[in-house]
Amino acid sequence: MPNFLVLLLGEIKRLQRYNIMTASVVVALLWIGVLYLTEIPDITFIFPMLIYVDSTSMAILLVGVTIFFEKQEGSLHTLLVTPINKKDYLLNKSVVTVATSIVTLVILYLYAAIFKEIDMSFTGLLGAVILVSLFHSLVGFLLTYRSRDFTALLINMMKYMFIFMIPTLLEYIRIIQHDLVEMILYLAPTKAAIILLYAAAGETELWEIIYALTYLGVGSIVLFMVVLKKFEQFAVQESGV
């Protein structure tokens, strides 16, 4: 069996055993609770917002949680001296994170389609979730590298939320209305993320979709290279030095 597959199956098994998968489903049920409490029958506007929060913050958290478990238990030490490829190790975590985001999307979309009204392309949402979650899993690596422990990771994630996620959300729902802020937010990956998610409703301009796809696509490639390069440094640090 190729090592990538061994790692992938191992990662999935650990997600179950460490109850991370359960936590992820519980979060999805919480989102369902939010949708249930929404009295508007057509949730096309609110739905991408929930997916946006989930596929950005949960992606960062999931990567951080799994790495911190491995750090805490010392299993990361032993993984570093096995014949696995660094790329395989990193990609594995990203793939599992994206898969978890997809599970949340499926659960929420099924609920929305059965109990509410939603006018969004599932395929469009799926593509957006894959790209947004992949990008943010890589952000998760970078934040984890910079965090001494899980609390520090949460603080770093909060910073990311305050700088990128929340302003983007506030601007999108028109609470912040300022041309300059709007322009500046195009620099934020979260802006590209929200554009791509809302594009599944079919009302987004083409240039915006191209911008978002390019930002998150090229960004993911660049970010992956940075994550890969910095992993060496992280590994040395985690080997007890």
């Binding site: 069996m1 090592n3 191992g10 098994k13 650990r14 055993r17 238990e73 010392g74 030490h77 032993t78």
Partner: peptide, 22 residues
């Protein structure tokens, strides 16, 4: 290693099988 380096929520056999396959 001097310190324990295993996945604590997996059994000993699951740990060994996981690493063996690599």
């Amino acid at each position: 290693f001097e310190v324990p380096v295993h996945f604590s929520k997996l059994t000993a056999e699951e740990n060994i099988n996981f690493f063996r396959k690599l």
